[in-house]
């Protein structure tokens, strides 16, 4: 592509938006810095996420980390940089660093599973609904309306309560509100896509519906769903924390960032770091996923 559209160049008032023009001559100096800034926009969050994932899943394997549960009660409440306990211990003598890492495993696993279910089930249902239309679409949308009018946290609480607290049930409960959200997005994306001529061309040339769905729709709405899933990772991690915080998520003594914050809250005055550490872990993870999701979105939307 060699042509640079002047009209779109006019619209490009905001230096933060839009990709570099493919045919544009790369100018030296500040321009190159901007290209680098663009790469960092994806690089930094991806790097952070990789770091967090490695630390949580490989860290306890490679390094000799104390067990997250069944700590020695004699070692309770140790301060930071204690011997063998880098971040100290909690009221039960469990190593905080170890609990952070194992808690992260649970949070990340749950968030990934919930979003996977959301994208596969919700994305599939939404795309099908948009593609088929008719009664299927109407009924599905009515059901989603109910879920959307339903206060999501209340629903999650009730489901968690009725099924009991466990990792599996938490995933199930949280899926209740990731599926409708993804379904709506994918449905409206499909409806927008159907307006485009190539879709009509595919349909008119007799391509079977399932093939249209797989070959034309899935690759087109995929990026949108992926960036939503990244943004949603942060939301799920926060809500999973809230469930644990309310005592309905991962059952103690197994660690999760949410129940660590809850445990720490009880002695907030005396040992604030019990709250501070998991809070920081939670925040950095959520910010990383949010950054990645948003930068992916702006990258794709400006393409």
């Amino acid at each position: 592509m060699a042509v640079v559209d002047v009209d779109s160049a006019i619209a490009q008032g905001d230096p933060e938006k839009g990709p570099p023009a493919p045919g544009a001559a790369a100018a030296p100096g500040p321009a190159r810095r901007r290209v680098w800034a663009r790469r960092l926009q994806l690089g930094v969050p991806i790097g952070l996420i990789v770091l967090i994932v490695l630390a949580c899943f490989l860290g306890p394997v490679i390094f000799d980390v104390p067990r997250p549960t069944n700590g020695d009660i004699l070692e309770s409440g140790l301060p930071m940089f204690s011997d063998g306990h880098l971040l100290g211990t909690d009221q039960n003598g469990n190593d905080i660093l170890s609990r952070l890492l194992y808690g992260g495993r649970a949070s990340l696993f749950i968030a990934v599973m919930v979003n996977l279910i959301g994208v596969v089930v919700g994305g599939g249902l939404g795309a099908l609904s948009g593609q088929l239309g008719g009664a299927f679409d109407t009924v599905l949308m009515r059901i989603l309306d109910v879920f959307i009018a339903f206060p999501s946290l209340v629903l999650t609480l009730a489901v968690a309560q009725s099924l009991g607290a466990s990792v599996r049930n938490t995933i199930f409960a949280l899926s209740f509100f990731s599926i409708p959200a993804v379904a709506r997005i994918s449905r409206s994306a499909v409806l927008r896509l159907r307006e485009l001529p190539f879709m009509a061309a595919a349909e008119l040339s007799g391509t079977p519906r399932w093939r249209v769905l797989l070959r034309h729709i899935a690759p087109n709405i995929g990026p949108q769903l992926l960036s939503f899933a990244m943004l949603n990772m942060g939301v799920v991690i926060i809500i999973e924390g809230a469930l644990s915080f309310l005592g309905l998520g991962i059952p103690p003594p197994d660690p999760s960032w949410g129940n660590m914050i809850f445990d720490g809250q009880q002695s907030l005055t005396a040992t604030p770091w019990l709250v501070v550490w998991p809070s920081i872990a939670l925040m950095v993870t959520v910010i990383s996923f949010n950054l990645l999701g948003e930068n992916l979105r702006s990258l794709w939307s400006s393409r």
Binding site: G234, G241, A242, L268, V275
Partner: peptide, 12 residues
């Protein structure tokens, strides 16, 4: 940043 902070973390 504020959008990424869990509400209960901010509260505490």
């Amino acid at each position: 940043t504020g959008q990424s902070i869990a509400n209960y973390v901010l509260a505490l």
